[in-house]
């Protein structure tokens, strides 16, 4: 019986949390118009969310591309199809690894920072202080951060893929002796703009939306103590990773499932 009581309570808790999150989302989205009037708020957040994630994204992208080059060459050379290395590297980066790994890194690098920042603001009663001054903290604090995350994510994912493709070329053509022209021309002939690039961008837009939402909501919903903030930060990373990977499966099934 105790187990069922626990299960019921957990279900109720998760529903109320989902309700709070949706309510928070509506407030956050309606605050976007006031962000656009004051773009310097957005710019500051773009700096802390996007620019400071730039380095980790490009370096990870480079290494992921180089590893793909090595592994792809190892498998493809068995079939005498080294020339298609470019297709393999580019397709796996643009379709999957670019959006997914960039979003996971983004959740770890920027999402956790957002949660900790908002949670600490709540713990030190800065948010209540703003409310006392008749400033809506959702409009002033949350919406600019959300918009910054939402806009930065596709750019970071595109950077990740582009740098990864160049990394694959460095290893494949420079180290392993795949023909440079074949690398690019095969890639060019076999990747489709609509099907591969646009779908990859759609994925990264969805991931940017979800990770920013989770990070900001967890911070805003944190128990205002040191322990509560630390738990909220952990939850941000864990929940973001789950939702990114789960959504990736659903999106892939929708986009590429029909052939």
């Amino acid at each position: 019986m105790e187990f069922f009581q626990y299960l019921g309570a957990a279900t109720r808790e998760s529903f109320t949390k989902l309700g709070r999150a949706s309510y928070f989302l509506i407030g956050m989205l309606s605050g976007i118009s006031s962000v656009l009037i004051r773009p310097c708020l957005l710019l500051k957040q773009m700096h802390s969310v996007g620019v400071l994630s730039f380095l980790i994204i490009t370096i990870s992208g480079l290494f992921v591309g180089m590893v793909l080059g090595l592994q792809g060459f190892y498998i493809l050379s068995r079939f005498g199809a080294e020339e298609t290395l470019g297709v393999m590297v580019a397709a796996s980066l643009v379709r999957e690894l670019g959006p997914v790994v960039a979003a996971l890194l983004f959740a770890g690098r920027a999402g956790s920072a957002l949660t900790a920042e908002i949670g600490l603001m709540k713990a030190t009663e800065q948010l209540s202080g703003m409310e006392m001054m008749a400033i809506d903290p959702i409009k002033r604090i949350i919406s600019p951060r959300f918009l910054a995350g939402f806009l930065s994510m596709p750019l970071l994912a595109a950077l990740f893929s582009a740098v990864g493709i160049i990394g694959g070329q460095i290893v494949g053509c420079g180290l392993l002796g795949v023909d440079d022209g074949a690398y690019w021309s095969q890639m060019n002939a076999n990747l489709d703009f609509q099907k591969d690039i646009i779908n990859g961008i759609i994925k990264s837009v969805v991931f940017g939306f979800v990770t920013s939402w989770i990070a900001l909501f967890e911070g805003y919903d944190a128990i205002p103590t040191a322990e509560g903030v630390s738990r909220a930060t952990t939850r941000t990373v864990v929940n973001s990773a789950f939702s990114i990977l789960g959504l990736d499966f659903i999106l892939t099934a929708l986009m590429f499932g029909d052939n």
Binding site: F54, A90, L155, L156, A158, F193, I197
Partner: peptide
């Protein structure tokens, strides 16, 4: 840089 890489993907990588 982000927009440039999008263009790179569109023009260099795919067949746009």
């Amino acid at each position: 840089a982000g927009i440039a890489s999008l263009f790179f993907l569109a023009l260099q990588v795919s067949n746009l």
